[in-house]
């Protein structure tokens, strides 16, 4: 099995190649919009470095956000076309789940919050369980004030993680001493986690349907939001 992971929903773009025995090549870019242009050539480079032909790829795993709209689309477009072109299965994962999974060994409630632009964060809460995490809330898009209220309402120790904490650190610190903000090193979803999580799903043939797989936008487009509020006003 050789799985290709593609994660582009935050300003850190990453691709990774791996199998049951671990990751064999990975690359990470954080160069702004240019990193979107480099996704496919980074896949080519990773295969080169791993000394594998593209025909060795047996599946594609992709991060679905929520996150930055254009980034998510680039990742999902690349992953879907790659899967269709190679004729291999595809699996998708919520990008916030990837971040939570990477801090699963902490014995605390986990809150993942990524920057959603437009003065909002995308966030969700998780509990560590044996072998991983389980998400206990829906994904929500809201300003930092709302997230702080959610953190205060929970009366237990919380690990707050995600690149949203880099943007709104001052506001989020207001939540109180029961909330620890994790280091930025854990703040971005990564393609290596995508590969790791894909393996068990691929083994039980729990594939996603190529046509139906789409980014998790959570928020409507600005034009649709304006339209909805005009309709409500009428």
């Amino acid at each position: 099995m050789l799985v290709l992971g593609i994660e582009t929903s935050t300003p850190q773009t990453s691709v990774a190649l791996g199998s049951e025995t671990g990751v064999v090549a990975a690359s990470l870019l954080a160069t702004g919009p240019a990193s979107h242009e480099l996704v496919v050539s980074e896949v080519a480079r990773a295969l080169d470095r791993a000394g594998m032909p593209r025909s060795a790829l047996t599946a594609v795993s992709v991060g679905l956000g929520p996150g930055l709209f254009t980034g998510m689309r680039v990742g999902v477009a690349a992953a879907k076309a790659m899967a269709q072109g190679l004729g291999v299965p595809i699996v998708g994962f919520a990008s916030l789940d990837l971040i939570a999974f990477s801090v699963r060994y902490c014995r605390r409630l986990i809150c993942v919050a990524v920057d959603g632009k437009r003065k909002e964060l995308f966030f969700a809460f998780y509990r560590p369980v044996p072998g991983g995490v389980t998400r206990t809330t829906e994904f929500e898009a809201a300003g930092p004030g709302r997230l702080v209220a959610e953190l205060i309402a929970r009366l237990e120790d919380i690990l707050l993680v995600g690149n949203g904490t880099l943007v709104y650190r001052r506001e989020l610190e207001e939540a109180g001493k029961h909330v620890e903000i994790a280091s930025a090193a854990f703040g971005f979803p990564s393609a290596t986690t995508l590969v790791e999580l894909a393996i068990p799903r691929l083994q039980r043939e729990d594939f996603d349907r190529l046509y139906d797989l789409r980014p998790n936008y959570v928020r409507k487009s600005d034009a649709e939001i304006a339209w909805d509020s005009r309709r409500r006003a009428d």
Binding site: H36, V39, V40, S41, V43, A44, R54, F69, T70, R73, V74, A77, A78, A79, K80, A81, M82, Q84, G85, L86
Partner: peptide, 18 residues
């Protein structure tokens, strides 16, 4: 944003199919 969807898919297809 619209261009980027087609371009990314085209690149991935070109790569996948050589």
């Amino acid at each position: 944003g619209a261009l980027l969807v087609g371009i990314t898919a085209a690149k991935a297809l070109a790569f996948a199919l050589g």
